[in-house]
Design a protein around this nucleic acid. Structure first.
Length: 837
RNA sequence: GCCCUCGUGGUGAAAUUGGUAGACACAAAGGACUUAAAAUCCUUGCCCUUUUGGGAGUGCCAGUUCGAGUCUGGCCGAGGGCACCA
């Protein structure tokens, strides 16, 4: 058997790929983009899968005549760089650049069709300069604001933590108890686009429904109304929001958030302050919230029921009412809301049923939230919930005590981070307290290199002079904002920068944007379903708003979210995690440690992660089996949207198969003309054409595992036909067609084989012909059970098939001597005889 | 708690609009080649039958249909998202 040295051919072709441009200037444009990586050190299998999928699409489109943009860059700002530099005394910039270099070389080993001339890095001042300019544009458009909010404050790190960095109420690194602290922060007013972010989801036909649904839930639109309650014995009132105004006759208390402005009346009240403290202390974790008891503080004040004369309702402060949703105040209807129910039980408040659950005498053991007819509700009695809602809202508006209201759960995007390694926010504070943007001509506001990372808190804050500056237009003294931008901002517009990555006069060349955008195919992990994708959509809409020359409203036309790469995990008897290479598998049951032959406990396959050491290093695999085999394996077996399980045996067998493909090419190359048979050649040609169709459509549908299965079949098909009377000319032409089909999957091997075969047109995809089949298999059924499969000419009529069946099919014996009461004939599919016994 | 998705051999999985269930691969068992092993190749893969053949079968229970992995209803199980959002 002829063998090929994968390392040698991969090196050879990667040299050619490095200057590869997938450009077909006359073709339709196609922007293929994979989510760019964070330069953490080395690429992992998740990257391999993501970028291999992208490469298949990019190469496929190019071979089909599209003008393809396929760039790559680095999401290079972020906290790990700061942490790493504290550990090994390396500047974040140097650490990041070192990682970029390593990872770029690793990506090249995969043979990707990336145009490296377009490379960008978000920590490059040539990149973030433009980001600062967009920030100022957003500021001028009213899309940036400054607000006081509660943040997760780590008292040891002296910094804000993101929600996911708070674990069981403690800082993930310092282990300090996280405090709720009020800080003045910068925000992007993403909520200004709530409606269009929701509405435009319907236009994104090329997005998975799952992602659209997640975003829709996140935006969380709900309909209801606001309603004013007059407070007894004062001229004050309190405004509540409700989605269930129909239950107003069941209202038995009003509850306010402890942060509601009404709390001013109680800021001298010691027990209230204690209560408020208690509320702020209770954890921000989901678990803590879910288990927290409903607590209230009785104000001893009352509101008047707006529809029941003389009825008064107590006002409480309650720990389960949030200030940043609605008005920060609710009315409680315990019979029909579980939280209100629990609260009422605890404080002995009235529970009045106003929606019938068809058992109205029975006492409730939990809130009834189902549908039904209204009872105990005056003029609403007998109406269904929906009708009662409309009627009561009308009545509320008529009386001028409230109005219909639509609310969104989406909150503005807090973008301030007390960090060094991020994009400086281009704002300055004048001595008189006014806050203004940096003059655009002064951009970029450069991150200083000489910082001391050993101090706690934000290094920019403690830098001796960086924040001292002057306002350009007036010469007034000013100090810089020392917070940097959330790194999600960096990735919210990089796909636009890729269209003209070296453009000097602004963030992007508008002509290029209008040509390349939107991204035709975006590929990445499902973990970005909400934040990154929502923020990018917001940025696109924001840019669209202030730049009238840009007519892009949505950034990503088609989205594909790939599954994770999983591997089982190993623990020794001491409970220490072990890397796969540290263990040895005797058989299915016995797994032992290589070092001391002790037993190893095998865990279920999980997403590869450093903490569990269940990782496989792509570079090792590429060196051992070749990049083509790694690409091949990672695309085979499972559909790309599902998780896959890494298996060394799988990649080894991929390698073997590719060797067989090479050998097949070699055998055909050296074949000299034998005898040929027209009929057999016809069948062979038809078979190949059929495979071309199947592979073409499976690529189009992202069914790469099916494409790969087809290649195995093709191999067997060739092996079979080598024995038959087929001219070597036809075999040679056919193997060329097949190798072209393999380019997207195994570009090195495919190109090497095409070169071997002396192919003059390696950049042209085989022609896809529809309706090539002349003969089809037709199922013969008796009473719906398949009894035979017969080969018939395509488009044969019922009559002709009838004759065939009755003459010599296996089904014949079932029909003989029986009465056929009905016949169902579906052309080119089945014929079904219904018989009686 | 609410919302969504998915249940097909020992395993990963195929199966255009309802029309041949299990393609292709991994693992396993048996065999061939070999002094032996590795590699390679072949066969098998639920039940009945010596074979031809027949039967059951896509989580469970019903339904629609000539025909259901695919459609409808209920149940069971797994995964994911959201979560005091009023």
């Amino acid at each position: 058997m002829e063998r090929v040295n994968f390392q040698a051919i991969e090196k050879k072709w990667q040299k050619k790929f490095s200057s590869l441009k997938l450009s077909n200037p006359k073709g339709e444009k196609f922007y293929c983009l994979e989510m760019f990586p964070y330069p953490s050190g080395k690429i992992h299998m998740g990257h391999v899968r993501n970028y291999t999928i992208g490469d298949v699409i990019a190469r496929y489109k190019y071979l089909n005549g599209f003008n393809v943009l396929h760039p790559m860059g680095w999401d290079a700002f972020g906290l790990p760089a700061e942490n790493a530099s504290k550990l090994n005394n390396l500047h974040p910039k140097d650490w990041t650049n070192k990682n970029i270099k390593i990872m770029k070389d690793q990506l090249k080993l995969l043979g990707l069709s990336i145009d490296w001339d377009l490379e960008i890095s978000t920590c490059d001042k040539e990149y973030y300069k433009h980001q600062q300019s967009i920030f100022i544009d957003f500021y001028n458009q009213g899309l940036v604001s400054r607000k006081e909010t509660y943040v997760n404050w780590d008292p040891i790190e002296k910094s804000v933590l993101a929600n996911e960095q708070v674990i069981n109420g403690r800082g993930w690194r310092s282990n300090a108890i996280v405090e709720r602290k009020k800080l003045s922060q910068w925000f992007f007013n993403i909520t200004k686009f709530s409606e269009s972010l929701l509405e435009d989801l319907t236009k994104l036909e090329g997005w998975p429904d799952k992602v659209k649904l997640m975003q829709a839930n996140w935006i969380g639109k709900s309909f209801g109304c606001e309603l004013n309650f007059e407070i007894e014995n004062t001229s004050d009132s309190v405004k509540v929001f409700t989605t269930r105004p129909d239950t107003i006759f069941g209202a038995s208390f009003v509850a306010l958030s402890v942060d509601h402005p009404f709390n001013k009346k109680f800021n001298q009240n010691k027990s209230f302050l204690e209560f408020k403290n208690e509320c702020n202390k209770s954890g921000t974790t989901e678990e803590a919230i879910a288990n927290a008891e409903k607590l209230g503080f009785n104000t001893k004040l009352f509101v008047k029921h707006p529809f029941i004369k003389g009825k008064k309702i107590p006002i409480y402060f309650a720990n389960f009412v949030l200030m940043d949703y609605g008005t920060g105040a609710i009315f409680g209807c315990p019979a029909h809301d579980q939280r209100d129910f629990e609260f009422a039980k605890k404080y002995n408040l009235e529970i009045i049923k106003v929606v019938s659950d068809n058992d109205d005498k029975k006492e409730l053991i939990e809130a009834f939230i189902g549908n039904g007819k209204l009872i105990n509700s005056d003029f609403l009695n007998g109406l269904k919930v929906d009708d009662a809602k409309s009627k009561i809202i009308n009545e509320i508006e008529k009386r001028g005590i409230g109005s219909k209201k639509t609310l969104y759960r989406l909150k503005d995007w807090g973008i301030s981070r007390q960090r060094y390694w991020g994009c400086p926010i281009p704002m300055i504070y004048l001595e008189d307290g006014t806050i203004v943007p940096v003059d655009k001509s002064e951009l970029p506001v450069v991150l200083p290199d000489d910082i001391d990372l050993s101090t706690q808190g934000n290094p920019l804050e403690s830098h001796p002079n960086w924040k001292m500056t002057t306002q350009k237009s007036t010469g007034k003294k000013a100090t810089r904002e020392t917070d940097t931008l959330d790194t999600f901002v960096d990735s919210s517009w990089y796909f636009m920068r890729f269209c003209s990555p070296k453009y000097k006069n602004g963030p992007f060349d508008e002509k290029k944007i209008n040509y390349w955008m939107p991204v035709d195919q975006y590929i990445g992990g499902i973990e970005h379903a909400i934040l990154h994708l929502l923020y990018s959509r917001f940025f696109t809409k924001g840019i669209n708003k202030f730049n009238k020359n840009i007519n892009i409203n949505e950034p990503f036309k088609n989205l594909f979210t790939q599954g994770m790469v999983c591997h089982e995990s190993y623990k020794d008897l001491n409970g220490e995690w072990l890397y796969p290479e540290e263990v040895e598998r005797k058989d299915n049951k016995n797994v032992i440690k290589r070092k001391d032959k002790t037993k190893v406990i095998v865990g279920p396959p999980e997403s590869m992660s450093k903490s569990k050491k269940n990782t496989i290093d792509p570079e090792t695999m590429i060196k051992q089996y070749g990049a083509d085999a790694v690409r091949w394996f990672i695309l085979s077996d499972s559909p790309p949207e599902k998780d896959i399980q890494w298996s060394d045996a799988g990649v080894a067998s991929a390698n073997k198969f590719l060797q067989k493909i090479w050998n097949l090419n070699f055998v055909i190359k050296n074949k000299s003309d034998g005898s040929s048979d027209k009929e057999q050649e016809k069948k062979f040609t038809l078979g190949i054409k059929n495979y071309v169709n199947k592979i073409d459509s499976s690529i189009k549908n992202f069914r790469f595992n099916v494409s790969i299965a087809q290649f195995y079949e093709i191999y067997n098909f060739f092996k079979e036909n080598l024995e038959k009377k087929i001219s070597d000319k036809l075999l040679k032409e056919s193997i060329i067609e097949v190798m072209k089909l393999m380019i997207p999957f195994t570009p090195h091997l495919a190109h090497e084989c095409l070169e071997l075969a002396n192919c003059k047109t390696p950049n042209k995809w085989p022609t896809v012909e529809k309706n090539i089949l002349k003969e089809i298999n037709l199922a013969v059924q008796i009473n719906g059970k398949t009894r035979d499969i017969i080969s018939v000419k395509k488009d044969f009529s019922e009559k002709e098939i009838d004759k065939l069946v009755l003459d010599n099919s296996k089904a014949k014996k079932y029909i003989e001597n029986k009465k056929v009461i009905k016949k169902i004939f579906v052309k080119n599919k089945i014929i079904n005889y219904i018989i009686t016994n």
